[in-house]
Each structure stands twice: as C-alpha cells, then as structure tokens.
C-alpha cells in the first residue's frame, strides 16, 4: 500500500503549522513565556512562537502559540466510520415508515445525567427542527417523546419500555471533566444489566460525539454537531428495515 503522508497545513504543504492556546498556572513574565515554549516543544513541536501572552489572574497566564508539528502521519492507515444511512428527506422517510414499517416509529429522547442543556435533543426532536429541517415531532409517522434534560438513565429506560420505543436518543451537550462519557456509558450499562440492550436502537448525540466513539461506547450510532433531524430519522428507519 502506498503511503500518503500528511501534516497540518498552514499556508504551504507540510509546514506543519498549528495554532494553540492554553493557560499555565504561573505569573506572567519572561520565565512564563519560556515555559510555554518549552512545554510546547515537549509536545513534539518545533519553531515554537509565543505570539501573545496575557495575565488572567495572579499566577495564571494565557498564551497563543504557533508551532510546527514534527511528526507526519500516513493517512492511508486511518480508518473511521460515518453513520451509514441513505440520504432521505422528511417525505421519503414518512412514506417509508408508512409503507414498509406499517406502524408509527417510536422514538424517545433525553439529555441524561446532570447536563441541563436541551439544545441538542431539541434540535432533533422539536417540531421546528434544525437548520430548516423539521424535527421528529413533526413527522406524522413518528411518535416522538422528548423528555428534556437532567433525565435519569432509569427514567429514560422506563419511558422507552412504556411506549415500546424503537430507538432511544441520548444527548450530552455541555460536559465538564468528561462527564458525557460516564453518562453515555451508564445508560448502556443499565440496558445490559437488564438484558434488554437488543430491544432498542441506541443513538448518541452531542458536540463531543462521533460515530466511532458512539460505537465504542456500545451505541448503534453517534451524531455530532450540525446533524439534522432527517439524518437521524433516516438512520433509524433504515436500521429497523435492514436496508
């Protein structure tokens, strides 16, 4: 297999230019700047330039840094999956559910754990939808239940069982110290403990989610920022119908 070596692109191929910004818990000054350079070098960068530093508080300095990444990467060795589903619009999806599933498709969604943000789940489920694409509540062939935010894993499961959900949408928007991973995992573990993981399609969503991560966590699919409701609906119906 031939190689396809890549590096970050600034304004010339293989210049490796990267822009970084971070804070060090030290007082601003020449020593702090030196520390920022040394630290960036230790991350495997060369030609480090601290272009800006500012004092955030006593003993906290923020830096903007440009540097050249040293390693190259063989792109041929990189594999990643995207959610596999056919591109379909609102009308095609409704018609597919109506003619092939022969009943309404049931979808339950919630933001679980301590996350109070409904923006992600609302974008997919609310009537209005997102970016000009109608939300699942608008689909006549979908029975959609949006439980909102701060829903416990148990409550989400109970509702899903009650309404015999085909798919469960789990959303995590704003995270602190990787709480989203813990919350996503907790829900899958709950299903596994109850031995009902196979009863539902599980879909994870949120700005920190991609399909690979979702699958690694035991979900059927993961959708990141910018996802429109029809992408989610198309995935679910295709999976249900095995097409």
């Amino acid at each position: 297999m031939s190689e396809q070596m890549i590096k970050p692109y600034g304004d010339t191929f293989d210049d490796g230019q990267v822009q970084l910004s971070f804070t060090l818990p030290v007082e601003i000054g020449a020593r702090a700047t030196k520390a920022a350079i040394k630290y960036t070098e230790s991350l495997n960068f060369k030609d480090v330039a601290v272009v800006h530093s500012s004092k955030l508080a006593d003993n906290f300095t923020c830096f903007v840094v440009y540097a050249k990444g040293i390693p190259s990467l063989n792109y041929k060795n990189i594999e990643a999956t995207e959610v596999e589903s056919t591109q379909m619009d609102y009308y095609e999806i409704n018609s597919l559910i109506k003619t092939k599933l022969n009943r309404q498709m049931v979808v339950v969604g919630a933001t679980i754990g301590s996350d109070a943000h409904t923006v992600g789940i609302d974008a997919i489920m609310n009537m209005k939808g997102y970016n000009g694409d109608y939300g699942l509540e608008r689909y006549p062939e979908i029975q959609a239940f949006n439980l909102g935010s701060q829903v416990t894993a148990e409550k989400l499961l109970a509702k899903s069982l009650e309404v015999k959900a085909d798919a469960i949408l789990v959303s995590q928007t704003v995270t602190q110290k990787d709480s989203h991973i813990r919350n996503f995992t907790e829900f899958v573990e709950l299903l596994e403990a109850e031995n009902i993981r196979d009863k539902f399609l599980l879909v994870a969503g949120g700005p920190r989610i991609n399909n690979d991560l979702a699958i690694e966590l035991g979900y059927n699919a993961g959708f990141g920022a910018g996802t429109t409701p029809n992408q989610v609906a198309a995935f679910i119906i295709c999976k249900l119908l095995n097409i």
Binding site: S21, T23, L56, V119, V174, T175, Q176, A225
Partner: peptide
C-alpha cells in the same frame, strides 16, 4: 466555547 464545555479560565478572559 460555551457550546462545548464549561468555559476555561482563558475563554472567559
């Protein structure tokens, strides 16, 4: 950065 995480100290600045 508020759509991503609880803002960092530098984000607030």
């Amino acid at each position: 950065t508020e759509a991503i995480h609880t803002p960092f100290m530098q984000d607030r600045a």
